[in-house]
């Protein structure tokens, strides 16, 4: 390789290194605010992938663009390039580096996964081990989120909340007070235990601000755990396509201080159950009068849930 090429490329490599670091920093701004301890763990991991990914993508693109600029054939140059069939050393290097890289990334992902200790998947083996034992083994690179999870696990446990997904609504039930709601209220900084049910088809429990998702499977109860750490209201979305009104199958998650949470529970318990507003039912009963093109026969939505608490429907409830 010519000296010019070596110098140019090393200069670009250094620039690229800084740029990749910058992208890794930026990646935190591409996702919703970190509302659960788990979100921080996922975002740190994602940032590593973004940094390396940027380096690799541009590390391939820059040499391509470089050769396009400097290795072009002249208009009347019909000769061939040098007859180079390969280079064993290079080929060994570019086999070994990706192997090391993917094993490293797998390890990092495994450690993050371990620290998150999401209950859901363990459901199949039904091991209700205290997660602390496992988690303690993994030396954390930033242990704040993990600490938050541990403290939350140690503080007063919250009852298991039943989550039922159906076509197309969400119902949350707090068994101790026998409160039902179409909005999921949670206390901050506590380890939350959910029991996920589906009445009909597959659904997905997805809270982007928590970076957590779990498919819900009919005829099975799936345990799911996480730790909200930020007070606020966050969307819960059905993530696994569930038929006609899938896109409208959303609910709010309200993370509150433990005092507010208790207050809300008490207030809700005092309300008599009444039918909640339900977008799917609203649209279904309105039929195809909406002026949209076409429309085929749909599965009928389950009737609107009858609950103690439901948020007011949006004022401008023109669901179109």
């Amino acid at each position: 390789m010519k000296l010019r090429a070596i110098l140019t490329l090393s200069f670009l490599a250094v620039l690229l290194g800084f740029f990749s670091l910058w992208m890794a920093q930026q990646s935190y701004s591409w996702v919703p605010p970190e509302a659960a301890a788990e979100s921080k763990l996922v975002d740190d991991l994602f940032s590593i992938f973004v940094g390396l990914g940027t380096f690799i993508l541009l590390g391939v693109t820059i040499p391509i663009v470089y050769s396009l600029m400097f290795h072009r054939a002249g208009k009347y140059d019909f000769s061939d390039g040098p007859h180079i069939e390969g280079n064993t050393l290079l080929e060994v290097i570019w086999t070994a580096v990706p192997i090391v890289l993917v094993l490293g990334l797998s390890t990092a992902s495994y450690r993050t996964y371990d620290k998150m200790s999401i209950q859901g998947p363990m459901e199949l083996v039904h091991l209700h081990l205290p997660q602390l034992v496992e988690v303690a083994n993994a030396a954390p690179f930033d242990n704040t989120p993990q600490k938050e999870i541990e403290t939350a696990q140690e503080s007063a446990p919250i009852e298991d909340i039943d989550v039922t997904a159906k076509q197309w609504s969400w119902v949350f039930r707090y068994p101790n007070q026998n409160v039902t709601s179409t909005e999921l209220h949670l206390p901050v900084d506590r380890r939350i235990h959910l029991a996920l049910h589906s009445d009909d088809v597959l659904h997905g429990f997805y809270v982007p601000a928590f970076r957590l998702k779990q498919d819900i499977i009919p005829n099975r109860v799936i345990d799911f755990e996480f730790t909200p750490v930020r007070i606020g209201t966050y969307p819960l979305r059905d993530s696994l396509y569930s038929g006609t009104y899938f896109a409208a199958n959303q609910a709010n998650i309200v993370v509150q201080s433990p005092a507010d949470y208790q207050q809300w529970l008490a207030d809700a318990a005092a309300q008599p159950p009444s039918p909640a507003y339900n977008q799917a039912n609203f649209e279904y009963s309105r039929g195809t009068k909406s002026g949209n093109i076409g429309g085929w026969k749909s599965v009928a939505p389950a009737s609107p849930p009858i609950v103690n608490y439901s948020p007011q429907p949006p004022v401008n409830s023109s669901p179109d």
Partner: peptide
């Protein structure tokens, strides 16, 4: 990855 690096090396120094 092996393929991608091979392709980049193929055009490198060629008469493109």
């Amino acid at each position: 990855g092996i393929k991608v690096f091979g392709w980049v090396a193929t055009i490198w120094g060629g008469k493109i």
